[in-house]
């Protein structure tokens, strides 16, 4: 299933913060199916978009090896609904983190207006109980991250560009060799 609720990343500072954009379109079924008669982009998917932004920010710190999942929506506040034609700008800042999880705070803006505020908790699934469990196939995951332009805009805190992790680029090469 296609589950991209962010169109692209526009800023990405490893371990610190990220910005992304989501353009709402009437071509998305959910916009008019979610609440027939009241066409809008569901707030739950805005939470998902912010969580995807924060989850990938956190995941990149371990070269996307940690199994990062959204564990808790600690707070969320929505000020108005988003409509087709709107572009939501998401901003996420990583807060305190520890071995098993992290807190992130975020906002959603439409054209400079604060649309939503959020606080999320991410957990990292441990090796003991989730040994050999892979949330994403590495080559597919790498493709997804490329589509979202994380490697294009991503930098380390010192300004140097982030790199495609070796295990992902190896998986990509292996995937491309299939059938050759």
């Amino acid at each position: 299933m296609r589950w991209f609720w962010v169109d692209r990343f526009t800023e990405f500072v490893s371990g610190q913060s990220a910005s992304s954009e989501k353009s709402v379109s009437l071509s998305e079924e959910v916009v008019d199916d979610y609440a027939p008669g009241r066409t809008h982009f569901p707030s739950s998917l805005i939470v998902e978009g912010l969580a995807q932004t924060g989850g990938l920010l956190l995941g990149q710190m371990s070269d996307f090896k940690d199994r990062v999942v959204l564990a808790k929506i600690s707070k969320s506040k929505f000020y108005f609904e988003a409509y087709p034609g709107d572009t939501l700008t998401y901003q996420i800042t990583l807060g305190p983190q520890e071995g098993i999880g992290a807190v992130a705070t975020g906002t959603s803006h439409v054209g400079g207006r604060l649309q939503a505020e959020i606080e999320l908790m991410f957990a990292k699934l441990d090796d003991e109980r989730f040994n050999n469990v892979e949330l994403f196939e590495p080559a597919e995951f790498c493709r997804m991250i490329r589509l979202l332009r994380i490697f294009e805009v991503g930098v380390n805190p010192d300004g140097s560009p982030i790199q495609v992790p070796e295990h992902m680029s190896e998986a990509e090469k292996a995937f491309l060799r299939i059938g050759v």
């Binding site: 564990a71 808790k72 600690s74 807060g95 305190p96 520890e98 071995g99 098993i100 999880g101 807190v103 908790m121 957990a123």
Partner: peptide, 21 residues
Amino acid sequence: SIDFLDIVFKLEKSFDITIPR
């Protein structure tokens, strides 16, 4: 379990202390 992490972070901030898990 995840709430405990949340609580630890909140207490650390509120009391300006470090809590080894």
